[in-house]
Design a protein around this nucleic acid. Structure first.
Length: 598
DNA sequence: AAAAAAC
């Protein structure tokens, strides 16, 4: 039945002006923003010859793979929503919109195509992050959202972006700046190419027949194909930072009409390695400032230090934490085994053999093995292959083709074992990953959280095994804390290490963020929380005065003190009134106007 | 010191 659904959809939700009468044989791409407006583009003056090449093939149906995917999912054991039901939620910020109620079928995003796509993609009941984040975003508010791995963050920001592009009155924005400069309305940045590709695929499904055009741009792939896509018009651009900067410097992309900015894996994007590039894109190009654009940051982890930096990019934002941020949902069983560094491979061999014996290594049960270095990935892949285990490897020294080939073979089960560096640690949604093995543990606990989050997705359970050796002692304390929060059994030898290391090694890099491992709360709340803990009132907003205050930090008294550093003197979250740019550019973003279900 | 991200 592939394609049948698409065929059955007669007309997309285009405004009448665009839809029927005298539709040109080769319709020029019209951005949704200007579809309601009287078209007064000079381009229309020459109907015989459109100004841009508009040979657009029929929009490919991105659902061709969905029917297969849906058939593949045992719906009776689909998303285990019970796993999310009693999850603690913290939301803070001024006038936070309340969460939405009901199932997706009760929710009108203001566009019947979009509504249909949501259902068609198998979304029935919103996960907590979707329930809380979507009203905030639909209301036009900035958002910093922390939610567990695998809980549907991508949809939580894609649905509102698409809905607001379709419904927004828009400033009648031009489709392009110079003759060949594309001007997207939304920008979604992510830290790896594969993640950008994945977001692009998802967003395309969501945007199908809404008229919203989604384009992806990342390095290692043909820039010409990307340029051609951009020339055909783009509303939502999904990109990695390097290629985006390249395209901007070539004047093939301008950000001056960006209304929506989303950073996926935002804490990674603002980490040392990425921060300069992100600052360049967001602050030193032509992107509208905070308060004009709508900015949304999503991650499973959000260290305090990064939160502080992130507030530069936000305006009067809502902070949302679903679950104890970084806690691995309890759906993931975590095991830690002590190994001598020289015994790691034989230990791994035992693990893999045990899997086979237990039958968990079935055709579709995939095993993802994380190592520290690219060389280590190649070497371990080779060793596994020569020992009878069908393995592949992915890391940043491979060509993009090799990376995608490896990922594809892993996903399809052709090689049910994949060895990976941290390139695969974040965001990738790979169904059927039953086991994540940390062959080398990461230095930072945040990376551990993201790595094990490749399993246990969408309410499914998963297993994570770590090989802990002496070099990992600095991680012991954070690991123990994390495991306890997730109700995991902690081996006594590990607790021992944790106690020892918590004295000597505290100055280490793991404590770079003051030890507040996950940024499990809004860093703006620097006053001691009310009795009962900060999850007490999920609807609560931080009491007026504490946003942007520069009170010295007072440690909370109820034992969730992770040694957060003082933020005294830092004027965070200040909301200076926006001064319009002098060049008379009307951004025209609508003010805070809730639509949909409010 | 490593990984990621442009050509």
């Amino acid at each position: 039945m592939s394609g049948s659904w698409a065929d059955s959809v007669s007309e997309p939700d285009l405004p009448a002006a665009v839809r029927s009468p005298a539709r040109p044989t080769r319709p020029t791409y019209v951005p949704p923003h200007i579809r309601n407006q009287t078209v007064q583009t000079t381009a229309i003056a020459t109907p015989s010859r459109p100004p841009f090449r508009t040979r657009r093939p029929v929009e490919p149906n991105p659902f061709d793979s969905v029917t297969e995917k849906l058939a593949d999912v045992d719906l009776s054991t689909g998303i285990n929503f019970d796993a999310y039901d009693d999850i603690p939620v913290e939301m803070s910020g001024v006038d936070a919109p309340p969460p939405m109620e009901g199932a997706f079928c009760d929710i009108d995003l203001g566009c019947s195509s979009l509504n249909g796509n949501v259902r068609r993609c198998g979304y029935v009941k919103p996960t907590p992050v979707q329930r809380y984040a979507m009203p905030v975003l639909m209301a036009g508010r900035d958002l910093m959202a922390c939610a567990q791995t695998g809980s549907g963050k991508t949809a939580a920001f894609c649905f509102p972006i698409i809905a607001r592009i379709v419904n927004g009155p828009g400033p009648g924005r031009p489709r392009r700046g110079g003759s060949r400069t594309a001007c997207p309305s939304a920008l979604i940045l992510s830290p790896t190419r594969e993640l950008s590709a994945q977001i692009h695929e998802e967003a395309k499904k969501f945007a199908f027949q809404t008229g919203v055009k989604v384009v992806v741009a990342y390095g290692g792939a043909s820039i010409h194909l990307q340029l051609r896509e951009l020339e055909r018009g783009v509303d939502i651009l999904v990109a990695t930072p390097g290629r985006l900067v390249d395209l901007i410097e070539r004047a093939r992309i301008s950000l001056h009409l960006i209304n929506f900015l989303a950073l996926d894996e935002a804490d990674r994007m603002l980490d040392m390695g990425f921060e300069p590039q992100i600052r360049k894109i967001v602050q030193q190009m032509d992107m509208p400032p905070p308060g004009i654009r709508q900015t949304m940051l999503f991650s499973a982890t959000f260290p305090t230090e990064i939160q502080r930096m992130a507030s530069d990019f936000l305006s009067n934002y809502i902070f949302l934490a679903v679950g104890k941020v970084g806690s691995s949902t309890g759906l993931i069983a975590q095991k830690v085994e002590f190994v001598n560094d020289f015994d790691k491979r034989s230990h791994l061999m035992n693990l893999l053999h045990t899997q086979k014996v237990n039958g968990t290594h079935g055709k579709k049960a995939l095993t993802l093995i994380f190592v520290e270095t690219k060389r280590g990935a190649d070497s371990l892949e080779h060793w596994l292959s020569t020992n009878g285990f069908p393995a592949t490897a992915i890391h940043g020294d491979k060509t993009q083709y090799e990376r995608e080939y490896a990922l594809r073979n892993f996903k399809t089960g052709t090689t049910p074992i994949m060895v990976a560096t941290d390139v695969a640690a974040r965001g990738l949604d790979i169904p059927h990953v039953a086991h994540v093995i940390n062959f080398d543990l990461p230095k930072a606990i945040d990376d551990y959280v993201h790595r094990i989050g490749r399993t246990g997705r969408a309410g499914k359970s998963g297993l994570a095994t770590a090989l802990f050796s002496e070099v990992n002692v600095p991680l012991a304390k954070a690991l123990v804390d994390l495991m306890q929060e997730a109700n995991q059994e902690v081996p006594s030898w590990l607790s021992q290490y944790a106690e020892e290391s918590s004295y000597g090694v505290t100055g280490g890099r793991n404590n770079r963020f003051g030890g507040n491992r996950f940024g499990g709360r809004d860093f703006r709340k620097c006053a001691p929380p009310k009795k009962g803990g900060y999850y007490e009132n999920p609807y609560g907003v931080s009491g007026g005065g504490d946003v942007g205050s520069s009170l010295p930090y007072t440690p909370p008294s109820y034992g969730c003190d992770y040694g957060q550093e003082s933020i005294g003197g830092v004027d965070v979250g200040s909301n200076l009134p926006y001064t319009p740019p002098s060049y008379g550019c009307d951004y025209g973003q609508e003010p805070i106007t809730a639509t949909g279900w409010d």
